[in-house]
Simulated scan of single mutants.
Amino acid sequence: MKIRFIFFLTLIFFCIFSAVSGCTESNDRNSGGLNESLKEESQQIAGNYVRDLDSYKTCNLTEPVLTESTNLNCSSCWQFVYKFDLVSEKDPDVVDTATVTVTVTEGEVVDTSYAQGSRYKLGIPSGSMGADDLLEKPVYDTEVFVYGTVSELEASEPDNVEKVSFKLNWENAELPVMSTGKPTGIEDIENGDWIIVTGELKTGNETGRDKGPVLFASRVQTEDLAETGLFTSEVNVNEEEMIVREIPANETAQAYRVWYEIREDGTTLEAKEKIFQNISPDNPIEIEIRDVKTGSTYTIRVFIRNMEGRILYDTEHVGGFGVEEKKTK
Rank of each mutant, 00 (worst) to 15 (best):
I186P: 11
E240C: 02
R310M: 08
W194V: 00
W78G: 01
T103H: 02
M242N: 11
C23T: 11
T299S: 13
A255K: 15
K57A: 08
I304G: 03
S76K: 11
K211V: 03
R4T: 00
I287P: 14
G33P: 03
L215W: 11
P176D: 00
G148Q: 14
V102G: 10
F321D: 08
E270L: 07
E325S: 08
I285L: 10
V20Q: 10
N306L: 07
V214R: 04
F14D: 07
E308C: 13
E200Y: 08
E288A: 07
K2S: 13
E143H: 04
I304D: 04
G192S: 11
N35R: 14
F321W: 05
V302H: 01
K121E: 10
V95D: 06
V81D: 08
L9N: 13
T299P: 07
G32A: 06
Q79E: 08
Y82H: 07
I243W: 14
R245D: 09
T315F: 03
N35L: 13
T294V: 09
F14K: 05
I275E: 00
F17G: 07
R290L: 01
P125V: 02
A271F: 10
P125G: 05
Q43T: 00
S296C: 10
L168Y: 09
A19S: 13
A226V: 01
Q43L: 04
T294P: 15
N306K: 07
G192D: 04
W194N: 00
N250M: 11
P125C: 05
L38I: 14
G107P: 09
D159H: 14
F216Q: 02
N71F: 14
N30C: 09
D291M: 04
C59N: 15
